[in-house]
Design a protein around this nucleic acid. Structure first.
Length: 642
DNA sequence: GTAGGGTTAG
């Protein structure tokens, strides 16, 4: 018996087949054709398990599959990711003499690719006849397979070969090829492929244009994506979705909301995909009210059970400061997945509820969900914000030991922050030096931040030197070092940093704050007088400053009082303060005022808001670049920093 | 009667 015969025989045994065709069929009357018709129906309705069952029944009945049978069955194996069954089918294909049928070959290739056996697909491709006879569909199947398996180089080489062999390229070729470009480094090739599409007149296909648009988005070339979008005469739901999620992925949250409104005006109804993109942008902006409207829309439209949407809602509410609502949605989810847990844990972490975050994480592990790298970022940052140093270090160790996850720079920056806030600066520095991967800007930046808290100038200078090698244009680090020098009365240092900033033509990003009120975003810049209520706002601010100055004396010792007086004496018209004054003027007593700040909230404002929260009996939540600060009755939720 | 393809969450 040859190897192939033995494989076939084993395969047939596995599939419970009759290798002899002599047994009479149980149904008798049924012929191959009705089996195929039924298989086609099942595959069309995505009932893949049933399709495979039917195929087995067919074999048991003694009917032989033919070239019209295999595409449906192979498609079912691909959809269910069953490579062994797929390989067994491959044996049946050979046995029934169908291996020369192009329809069967392409189905086989697609099945192997979808099951990640792309080299088997290549084999089928190579066995499928001479280059000159090879069909476009064969190339298409393998090219899309390379894309699916992120084999960038192989995909490009095969496309070149296809062009050289003179095989004609069609829209499906481009649909398979264009998504190979997923990184900014691939933009050049992506533009080249765009050129090919234009050359072959394929860029007018809506599906190809959608694909090009998405490619540009993934390569970070949002302006190119927008050009493709604007040139499309008829924009369907998928096109709008691609552009909306493209903006969302590139952090252009305000563009998302604008486009969402335009989409509605154009008469296209959003679906779950659209709303996921919109919710993610609401989360970035802290646009609570728009987010709530989206939730109502979901409830009306009846697709509320989609786990993607639930996760997006949890994320949105958590990042808008409404943890209660986020938790309620989380608790009501019938099946919580890793993403749901990441969203809720990240939410608790940002709000300083590290204990709840780690408790939820432990529960998740117990429930059998395997953590990934992303959730460890949430957990570690939750620990660092809540001062759970040892717990955080335990998780960091468990990452690699228990779950085989190699920590990336994003984890190291959390751990450096964790150790740094706890004052363990040297340990933090040693950790950076021991890193397997190259430390990035945020890692050294975390150390620099910790040096500010613990007033360690020497280490700060080292961290600064490293961080600006990596991110020379990031203004935040210069400001941080300058402030460290200022606090230490090292004027020479301050002057030097300022000189460096001037030399490199770095200008401070303007700080702004906003409050969402009455369905609109009210934006404030420091010293800004353009708001319609500016007069009232400044009068309110005057009043508040007087009240606050009187209450500086609440503090226990002279040193604390003096340093607070010093802080308050430098009071300017900061954007946070304008936003708070606006909130006090316009919202009902007793309600919480939520302010979003693009940069880190400054110490001066921090103290100011703390004192205001005591004297006017209101609660404030300020979300800044890294976290939430809850101010209530003269205290702030942050235990470690302020 | 059959194959190859595009958009979604942290």
């Amino acid at each position: 018996m040859t190897v192939r015969q033995s494989l076939i025989s084993r395969t047939n045994k596995l599939l419970n087949l009759q290798t002899t065709a002599t047994t009479s069929t149980s149904t008798g009357t049924i012929t191959t054709s009705p089996w195929n018709t039924r298989l086609r129906e099942l595959a069309k309705q995505c009932q893949f398990t049933q399709a495979l069952t039917l195929y087995r029944q067919m074999l048991r009945s003694g009917d032989s599959p033919n070239a019209f049978t295999f595409p449906f069955v192979l498609k079912s194996c691909a959809a269910l990711s069953l490579p062994i069954s797929g390989a067994q089918l491959h044996c049946h294909v050979i046995k029934t003499g169908c291996k020369r049928e192009p329809f069967v070959q392409t189905s086989l290739m697609s099945m192997y690719c979808k099951c990640s056996f792309v080299d088997y697909a290549r084999k089928v491709f190579e066995e499928s006849g001479g280059e000159s006879r090879k069909l476009t569909v064969c190339y298409n199947a393998l090219i899309s397979g390379y894309t699916l398996n992120s084999r960038f180089y192989d995909g490009v080489v095969l496309f070149c070969k296809m062009r050289e062999s003179g095989v004609s390229v069609n829209s499906v070729t481009m649909l398979g090829l264009v998504p190979l470009c997923t990184l900014p480094a691939h933009l050049g090739l992506g533009m080249c492929l765009h050129g090919c599409c234009v050359k072959f007149g394929l860029d007018t296909h809506n599906s190809v244009a959608n694909c090009l648009l998405t490619m540009y988005v993934k390569c970070g070339a949002v302006d190119c994506a927008l050009k493709v979008f604007n040139l499309m005469p008829e924009k369907g739901l998928i096109t709008w979705n691609a552009m909306i999620s493209g903006y969302a992925q590139n952090g252009l949250a305000t563009h998302v909301l604008d486009l969402y409104h335009k989409m509605e005006l154009s008469g296209i109804h959003p679906d779950a995909v659209t709303l996921v993109g919109v919710l993610s942008s609401c989360a970035h902006l802290g646009a609570h009210i728009v987010g709530r409207e989206v939730e109502q829309r979901i409830q009306c439209s009846g697709f509320g059970i989609n786990p993607f949407l639930s996760n997006a809602l949890i994320n949105m509410y958590a990042r808008c400061g409404n943890l209660t609502k986020a938790r309620a949605i989380f608790d009501h989810m019938p099946e919580k997945n890793l993403v749901s847990c990441t969203a809720i844990i990240g939410g608790y972490g940002m709000h300083g509820h590290g204990e709840i975050a780690v408790q939820l994480f432990d529960e998740m592990i117990r429930s059998g969900i395997r953590p990934d790298k992303a959730i460890f970022v949430s957990v570690l940052s939750a620990c660092s914000h809540a001062g759970l140093t040892d717990k955080g270090m335990d998780y960091f160790a468990a990452m690699e030991i228990n779950y085989g996850l190699q920590p990336g720079p994003e984890h190291y920056s959390c751990v450096v922050d964790l150790l740094g806030r706890a004052g363990r600066l040297n340990e933090a520095k040693e950790l950076i030096e021991s890193m397997q991967v190259k430390p990035d800007g945020p890692v050294w930046g975390a150390l620099l931040g910790a040096c500010k808290i613990h007033k360690n100038i020497q280490l700060a200078e080292l961290a600064f030197e490293r961080v600006i090698e990596l991110e020379p244009m990031n203004i935040g680090y210069y400001v941080l070092l300058s402030n460290i020098y200022r606090e230490a009365d090292n004027l020479e240092g301050v002057v030097n940093v300022r000189a460096m900033m001037r030399e490199r033509k770095l200008r401070k990003e303007p700080g702004y704050s906003y409050v969402e009120y009455n369905g609109r975003v009210h934006l404030f810049l420091a010293g800004d007088g353009t708001h319609p209520q500016a007069g009232e706002i400044y009068r309110m601010l005057d009043e508040l400053e007087n009240v606050v100055k009187e209450h500086v004396g609440f503090y226990r010792n002279d040193q604390e009082r003096r340093s607070n007086e010093e802080l308050l004496s430098g009071m300017g018209m900061h954007s946070e303060k304008l936003a708070i004054a606006f909130g006090l003027l316009n919202t009902r007593p007793g309600t919480e005022i939520v302010v979003i700040k693009n940069l880190r909230i400054c110490e001066n404002c921090h103290l100011f808001i703390k004192l205001v929260s005591k004297t006017v009996d209101r609660q404030f939540v300020v979300r800044d670049a890294t976290r939430f600060h809850h101010f209530r009755n003269g205290t702030c939720s942050c235990k470690d920093y302020w």
